[in-house]
Design a protein around this nucleic acid. Structure first.
Lengths: 408, 408
DNA sequence: ATTATTTTCTCGACAGTCGAGAAAATGAAT
DNA sequence: ATTCATTTTCTCGACTGTCGAGAAAATAAT
């Protein structure tokens, strides 16, 4: 259903547009903002004045220029307008970062996960404590934090900030909004990790409009398999989602998965699935909780030396991925695939299987196989995704309250 | 990327809102429009005056009322504001309908498809001729037609009105926009048939807001397998798509498909797939182009009498569907599934397989199986989908040109 | 006839965008 | 040193749109 519009909404939308342009292109002058957004110069004046009064923007003192004429004066986000806390939860460590409104990192520390502990309660305590510590280390008031952005592997309900299923906690739900509700009056955002990779790659692609970005997928290879999909809807807005790819059904013969089901993609293409196949462990063996990378490196080495079962293990992992990707493309559309995660070091071993798995499907026969690119530095991309997403939401909030909330 | 907004766009959006309310709820008075849309009474006056001047609306002469006070005067779409041609292409017949702007059917005829003919050229000629005939029969000028809305099974590029793959023409593309371009100056819309079923069911669900509609899927069972998905995006607009479900990879062992690939869902769950399995024809046999329904009825009868291979054929069809649905739900979200098409008469035979195929996946174990409903009358739903979609687009056009295009 | 009631229409206030041109700020030319 | 050309930023009035309040219209009840 469509929804009512009004002149105030117009201002809100255009304010958000100005903030987005500033995020995308860095510091911009009045005229550059006008060119970038398509807004008339007079409108830019009105909007920047409002945002300046609200404290979100400031004029940079240094006006760079060489040419003739009145020098341009650059607008820039006011870094002290607020702060953002980014939490990356991975299987062995949790990383806490403090970022300012300008997107620059102020503080960061890691906390090792205690693998002996069972259940979410101890983790929840450690989580709340760590946020508190982050404030203390920077002598920051809690109300200066505009948002907390959290990422984890697994199945996530983004609207309510609930972790529905994760490799670590299984079906035990974790409601981050409820966790912080008593003390923190901030927006809590929870995103799947690979969704953020897709988000980061998509914002990168949007920075160069000549690339004609439409859609992309990011696949993370590791103990578990993640998928993020970023697509531009016909209305022009970016739609990013994290389908449950790792536990999509591959084929029942792929064996028992960590999640308790049989035949998930992960059960064939995740690290433990590869290990199981290489060592010819029965497919209904409950797989190891954690497979050291050194172990997989050994299998990869023997596969590269021609060992049959090791090679087979990577090949069947590739087929599971190829089939899964082909199914994903059938349900969405043709789009480039970016592969990341620790598993990319074995990508050469999986590629023949992937190609085989792709070639079977009608979608690929019809439109050709998708471009596949390897992307290193997954953790940096996740962090960039956090920034793009959380700061974008914060900008939206600023635009929607406008200058009205600021007295005087 | 966000896009610039302006006061004119506000009017455009709100005009569309008024037209949509009128479509949804039938004829409405001034106050009802205001209540339905949330717009102020003064705004409704301005918009209805503009739309009346443009010729899209008129006041109904009869003012129904019982109570006191000034009687309400109902607004209604002006049926003669323009016309819509709806073309339903199915495997054996093409149905041409002429509809007015109010959505009432004015004329309709069917044309049998000639199965001997090869290639798209003869079909294209017959198509253009039939449209011409539709005009002549109602003595209608060509420029009174606002849009031509076409539906077919198969893979469709909705933005460009090109049929990319279809059961009948295979990979031979058919560009309907180009077909009509020389003579016709109308909007040409091409939609997958099952997409329109999903569209119709979704607009029905939206009519009762208490149902809290979020998403639904429509699956059509027949010679081929179709899927339509309708989802409300977070911005509130309806997003309807027709993923390539029938030719999504099920499992390579499902055998050769009409499309030339191996293991498509259709190769197991389409009519010819069931036939092949029941008669134990080798799985790489090129399947029959067309399977009479009587033939399948016989298999169903023997299956119901306990015949082993017949029962197995329907069961493996069900498993293919169940696996496919579970994969679809993994990639989107949990949503009710509506099953339609001629194949629903065998649904009881497939249901055990469907449930088995669903139960294997993690998504279903976690969130429970989706609600499955049987929906008869597929053809009526397709037609309703045509109307909802095409008239919605026409309304959008009217709102966007506004009264500006109409002289004095 | 008058009154109560409900609906529709109209008017002025307010919010927003835009184009044009004034004002500002600087380098180049005289 | 002053003036001129150039570029950027700012400001003003016109235009479009929404909204609330109250006037005007149309009918049933008194």
């Amino acid at each position: 259903m469509l929804t009512k519009s009004s002149t105030e909404l117009v201002r809100q939308q255009n304010s958000a547009l100005v903030l987005a342009a500033l995020r995308r292109a860095g510091n911009l002058s009045h005229t550059e903002i006008s060119a970038e957004t398509g807004l008339a110069s007079a409108t830019v004046s009105a909007i920047t004045a409002e945002l300046e009064k609200a404290g979100a923007l400031a004029k940079a003192e240094q006006h760079v220029q060489g040419g003739r004429g009145r020098p341009r004066v650059l607008f820039t986000p006011r870094r002290d307008h607020g702060h953002l806390i980014v939490v990356r939860i991975s299987s062995d460590v949790v990383q806490y970062s403090l970022v300012d409104y300008g997107g620059t990192l102020l503080d960061r520390f890691d906390e090792a996960r205690n693998h002996d502990e069972r259940g979410t309660a101890p983790f929840a305590r450690a989580f709340v404590d760590a946020l508190e510590r982050l404030l203390q280390r920077s002598r920051l008031e809690r109300d200066r934090v505009l948002a907390v952005s959290i990422s984890s592997k697994g199945l996530v309900d983004g609207t309510s900030a609930r972790l529905l299923w994760s490799p670590v906690f299984g079906r035990e739900e974790l409601d981050f909004a409820a966790l912080l509700a008593p003390q923190w009056r901030v927006k809590v955002m929870l995103s799947n990790e690979t969704l953020l990779v897709a988000q980061a790659l998509a914002t990168q692609a949007e920075r160069k409009p000549e690339s004609g970005f439409r859609a992309l997928a990011a696949i993370s290879l590791g103990h578990s398999i993640g998928l993020g999909v970023a697509r531009k809807s016909q209305s022009g807005e970016m739609d990013v989602s994290a389908p449950n790819f790792g536990h999509m059904l591959h084929t029942p013969s792929a064996g028992l998965c960590r999640c308790g089901a049989y035949g998930c993609i992960e059960a064939a293409a995740g690290f433990y699935g590869i290990l199981r196949a290489a060592f010819e462990v029965p497919a209904d063996t409950i797989p190891a909780k954690f497979v050291p990378v050194a172990e997989l490196d050994k299998i990869a080495a023997s596969a590269r030396q021609g060992h049959r079962m090791a090679g087979y293990a990577f090949r069947q992992a590739g087929i599971a991925l190829g089939n899964g990707i082909s199914r994903m493309l059938s349900l969405y559309e043709r789009m480039p695939v970016h592969v990341t995660g620790p598993g990319i070091r074995y990508f050469d071993l999986m590629l023949p299987g992937i190609e085989e798995g792709l070639a079977q499907s009608m979608q690929v026969r019809l439109q050709g196989p998708p471009e596949i690119a390897i992307v290193a530095d997954e953790q940096r991309l996740v962090f960039e995704g956090h920034l793009a997403r959380a700061l974008g939401v914060i900008d939206g909030d600023i635009a929607s309250v406008g200058a009205s909330a600021v007295p005087g």
